[in-house]
Amino acid sequence: MMFGNDKRGKLFRKEKGVKKKDVYDMLLSIGPAKKVVIYFLSILLVIIYMLPFYWMFLKMFRSSIFAHFPPDLNPFSLTSLGNFIVNFRDVISFGSFPLWYFNSVFVAVLVVSGSVAVGSAAGYAFARLHFKGRDLLFYAVLATLMIPFPVISIASYIFMLDLGWISTYQGLILPEIVSGLNVFIFRQYFMTIPVDVENAAKLDGLNPFQIFYRISAPMARPAFAAATIYTFIGTWNNFLWPLMEVHSQNLFTLPLVLNFFKGVNGTQIYWNEMMTVVFLTLIPTLVIYILFERYFVEGFTLSGVKG
């Protein structure tokens, strides 16, 4: 053996992004008076954010669509579970609910994978490749972030009409795959990866495409997580585009389905069933968030984007 075994040397690695530990350390360094204010505000925020969920549970555990007086504010009672099972059965047998659920999942999966694939490749190109007009093109991509969807919705609709893609899966999916935000997230992340790692790969005999998918992409996991969560939530909750694009019930996604439960002409609202649908709709979002949560904050702080 040529060298002794030494554990003393330390490389000064620059810590990137915000770690949970940093937040805890920050909290510990704050004085008690400030702490009270911070905790009070945090608890207030939690209550505000949790109220709709409380209401969702309240309603999905009821059998009747009518309000009682005095109102019963405890969502959990002896009949709760039974009520929920009845509501659940009613919901999944309503129209083609399983198909609609499948539509939502199908569209979301394809949009997320397509958008992340395109976004990461484009972001990598903007971060690493040198070509004429690169920066101008990148600014053009950034500019698309500033245009709200309703502004281009009619143009998009006419475009789909010309392609004959109205009320088709491709019409529902393809326009959503193009995401300036994802390109931006990936570009910013790839720019933080040291060029020398890629140079080392080049010397090891990898071609640019291999460098991308064997070296750089695996290093950009936080960006992939952030883009996946962001795109998934956006697509899963998307209401306006499916509303315009889909003319047949066979292509309905969950946000459109929810619309049914508000009743005809708004006269009768089936709160208990509606909230059961809301609950079922929430599950995949929660699963995605739990799966990718640990990369999520890092991904967004690094790209300098706030969700």
Binding site: L11, N199, A201, D204, R221
Partner: peptide, 30 residues
């Protein structure tokens, strides 16, 4: 000639190891 065919090896500042690969795979990749 492409960098990988010049028969040179480079040691970088801060090593530039592939962070997602084990030490073994870092060495073996070439």
């Amino acid at each position: 000639i492409h960098p990988s065919e010049r028969n040179v090896a480079m040691v970088f500042q801060n090593q530039a190891l592939y962070p997602h690969m084990t030490v073994y795979n870092n060495i073996a990749l070439n």
